[in-house]
């Protein structure tokens, strides 16, 4: 699949945003009187990431001005559900923010608002993942790794972005750092299994089944329908070289996993927390996000669409 930057940015940014919302809500609920500073930095950041993501995904539409219609088909369409969930999330998120920032309250109903926000955030990420997971036409997406992958990575990146704020307000990092590390490792495991399995998965369809001519022997394309491009090949015909892919996978692992973990370990080893630690965890967050962007780019670039079987691909 063609790795469209708008979509990559959308899924990664909103993923991190929603993840951050989850952590903010939990943190607020658990502490009960969270430092407004964290709210003042965290909430705008989270909502900014989410909103920027949603906007970029809208801009790549042919008719952004009609985007509001996209909620009507929630009965059948995951894209529709995602839109709906995204919009709904703003409501409790608003309350939650109002409580924390204006009323300086995050207990009682304010914390409930926070928890509802967290829940809807996860639902939104889940819907996003389902959009891809439900496409039978793209074997690399249509499997059990897509949904947990998206969720784990959202929570991991969200966690990573939560840490600098804790550092800033001089709060204890461990309660967030530990689960974040956990989600980082979980994402890594999921991704590693994903590659291990999908790389060697039996093809869902072949040029033989696509054309129904397999009984005659290997089916090869002699001439395409046109000598110039077609929409299908522009959109779905993206091919990435094996070597290239391996290198990118390594980079994704380096930025997305190794660097953040190393940094977190170092920070936790350091006594107390301060500017120094803050700087380091910010670094971890940036690195982690870069890793996820790389992962997401590969998620598209490596995915083969069965329609390409008509254009010379021998299996998908």
């Amino acid at each position: 699949m063609h790795p469209a930057l708008s979509v990559i940015f959308f899924t990664t940014a909103s993923g991190a945003g929603y993840g951050l919302l989850v952590w903010l809500a939990l943190y607020a609920a658990l502490t009960g009187d969270a430092d407004p500073l964290i709210g003042w930095v965290g909430l705008p950041l989270a909502l900014a990431l989410v909103t920027a993501g949603l906007l970029s995904s809208t801009f790549h539409l042919g008719h952004p001005e009609r985007a509001w219609r996209a909620m009507s088909q929630w009965r059948s369409s995951w894209l529709s559900r995602e839109g709906l969930a995204a919009v709904l999330t703003y409501i409790p998120a608003g309350l939650f923010a109002a409580g924390w920032l204006l009323a300086d309250r995050n207990d009682g109903i304010w914390s409930i608002a926070g928890l509802v926000t967290a829940l809807l955030a996860l639902v939104t990420v889940y819907c996003t993942a389902k959009i891809y997971q439900s496409l039978k036409t793209i074997p690399r997406w249509h499997n059990g790794f897509t949904v947990p992958g998206y969720l784990a990575m959202a929570l991991a990146t969200g966690g990573l972005w939560m840490l600098p704020m804790l550092a800033l307000s001089g709060a204890e990092l461990l309660p967030i750092a530990l689960p974040t590390t956990g989600f980082l490792l979980l994402s890594a495991v999921i991704k590693w299994r994903y590659w291990a399995v999908t790389d060697h998965a039996a093809p869902t369809a072949t040029s033989g089944t696509a054309t129904g001519l397999s009984s005659l022997g290997t089916v090869r394309l002699l001439e395409g329908p046109t000598t110039s491009e077609t929409y299908v090949m522009r959109e779905m015909g993206y091919k990435i070289g094996r070597k290239h892919a391996v290198k990118l996978r390594q980079l994704a692992a380096l930025f997305g996993l190794l660097i953040p973990i190393a940094v977190l370990a170092a920070v936790l080893a350091m006594p107390g927390s301060g500017i120094m630690a803050g700087g380091l965890v910010l670094l971890a967050a940036l690195s982690g996000s870069i890793g996820v962007v790389l992962e997401r780019w590969l998620y598209f670039a490596e995915a083969r669409h069965v329609a390409t079987l008509y254009y010379g691909a021998e299996f998908a």
Partner: peptide, 10 residues
């Protein structure tokens, strides 16, 4: 077409 975002326009 109405402006009800949940309407399924036929």
């Amino acid at each position: 077409m109405s402006i009800n975002p949940f309407e399924t326009v036929v």
